[in-house]
Write a protein that binds this DNA or RNA. Structure first.
Lengths: 339, 339
DNA sequence: CTGAAAGCGCTAACAA
DNA sequence: TTGTTAGCGCTTTCAG
């Protein structure tokens, strides 16, 4: 009953060779339907269960697709993984994940370990790995897709959007709305390189328009609604006249709204709050918050497809896919029409 | 540079046997430090990267630990996975995940595929797999941990709490608060067996206390804040005198609060809202919501540890771990002190 | 401390 | 349509 039953046992019991049994158990192509039926029947009886490890070694490739994300407590990455799941459903590919916790050393170890499983492909978050990791990615024979960011150079393929432009775009929109006093609230800026890029884009755009003074409230703790609430309180205590705050993400911005609601600060009339990610929750908030809707699921899907297509293109001379831009949409309709 | 370099190449270049090279690359036990150093140096030069597939086949075991969850869009499961990550960090184990989408057929396929990788362990959500899947789990030589639920019989080991009691407990608390008119709002009740158990516990407890009439608003769509908002509106339109609503989870309850805030319904004075999960966000809401804080991370950690300890106990006669209960805490302080 | 032999369980590539 | 022959790259014996 246990996994001690091997293909050889099945073959013997069915009175065929291992090879025939092997063929019968998978493709069934070039095997008589009768044989297939008999072999499968016996396999079921014996409780035979194929061994992916042996199969992978024999044909020198696995059906594994490695995914490296910085965090799982962030719903964003869960959604990326859902997108990946969607794309590979039915292809027989299996995702396996690793979480870096934004730690480059851990990322290196993870990528190494994953690569040593000889995966069919690797999806890694971000373009800013350290040099060791980058070398691994570049040397990899398996297709590699870096996701979520296009500000930089990809080791192989890349699916995402410009974080810098996302930040700049939000700044431009706030400026266009006539806001004059801008603030910024962010978490994990010591390690979240994409959040840093957004902030840089935001500040740069403001600077271009002559807004030099931008008070910031930052922290190295991990993003949360509670942190957003507290940091908004602090920022506004020091700078009560702000009329727009950009947050490193929606979680913080939601905390900001909650603070404003408790303090009866009119949002968005007196103060516009802008987050990032476009979490579903944001659309349901009692007070409007601007956000950038990122197509995380699409990024996951596109990344997985890029790997699949690379496999399909194997040996052909088709030009290889490099960067797939994914649109993001600044969503501030509720915010601005409410003004 | 590529992964074409095998251990044999390294061994040859170092002038030792494959075996010595193998030993040098991992444990380093029973090998002279000199040899270890030389072999590793050459391995690095050659860009050698071990092959986990071959290693696993040779020693007939992998370092993979399979995790099956129903969904990733639910932050709860991401947190379980974080807990698992924590527990296995540094043990060299690799988690690989599969998502069922609450589909039993898909779950069966997933478990099969995972088992065929001969994992070091398997963590599966829930106790209510269909019979095929259950057979697989029971026949598995790898340790299996079912998580999140203890209402039922485990195939092997089990880590979680009673969903039924969680629902009943919330009912009791609401009753003790003097509430008289109870409602219920739930999503995905056609497939989320744990949500069903909570509702059953809730209704049963209410019935015991004589509250027979409990209007329900249910839907098969997936839980979301938006759904909670809409369903609360509908439920209250039909039953405006309700003074307590239990939701199948926090997402829906949060939608409920947002509805009440927009309609200026005093929460919790006029209406108590109760969710489930204890999401961090709930603690930051402008209006208090009761919830059941579940230790999801602990569940993940305990599950992973159960697998590790099973491995450690291999061959020994220690009694085997069966069920690990994990506390959940009903958190309604803000709700009730505010009353 | 090091090495040689013998597989792990499966499948590619032929051959029949 | 089926079978045979060789491995895949590593590690477990067991000898030196």
């Amino acid at each position: 009953m246990h996994s001690k039953v091997t293909l050889a046992d099945v073959a013997a019991a069915a009175g065929v060779s291992k090879m025939t049994a092997s063929r019968a158990m998978r493709g069934a192509k070039d095997v008589s339907p009768k044989t297939v039926e008999r072999v499968r029947e016996i396999a079921a009886e014996l409780g035979y269960m194929g061994n992916h490890v042996a199969a992978s070694l024999a044909n020198n490739r696995t059906d594994l697709i490695g995914v490296v994300v910085p965090s799982l407590s962030n719903i964003v990455f869960s959604e990326v993984m859902s997108g990946i799941e969607d794309a590979i459903a039915g292809t027989g590919l299996q995702p396996f994940f690793g979480v870096t916790g934004y730690d480059p050393e851990r990322e290196y170890l993870l990528v190494r370990q994953m690569l040593s499983w000889r995966p069919a492909g690797l999806i890694v978050t971000g373009l800013d790995q350290d040099s060791q990791t980058r070398e691994l990615l570049q040397a990899s024979t398996a297709p590699v897709v870096q996701i979520m960011d296009t500000d930089g150079t990809a080791a192989d393929m890349c699916v995402g959007f410009s974080q810098r432009e996302a930040g700049a775009g939000m700044a431009d929109l706030l400026i266009a709305q006539g806001r004059k006093q801008f603030g910024y609230v962010g978490c994990a800026l010591d390690r979240d390189t994409r959040a840093i890029k957004r902030r840089d884009g935001y500040l740069e755009s403001l600077t271009k328009s002559g807004f030099i003074q931008v008070p910031q409230q930052t922290s190295t703790e991990r993003s949360s609604v509670a942190a957003g609430k507290a940091m908004t309180a602090e920022l506004l205590a020091a700078h009560p006249t702000l009329d727009a705050i950009y947050y490193s993400n929606d979680d913080l911005a939601i905390g900001g709204v909650f603070h404003c609601m408790e303090q009866s600060i009119p949002v968005p009339e007196q103060l516009i709050l802008a987050g990032f990610n476009g979490l579903d929750l944001v659309a349901s908030l009692p007070a409007p918050v601007a956000t950038t809707r990122t197509s995380r699921r699409d990024i996951g899907t596109a990344a997985a497809k890029a790997i699949l297509s690379r496999h399909a293109a194997e040996g052909s001379n088709d030009p290889l896919l490099k960067t797939v831009p994914i649109q993001h949409v600044i969503d501030a309709r509720r915010t601005f029409t409410a003004k």
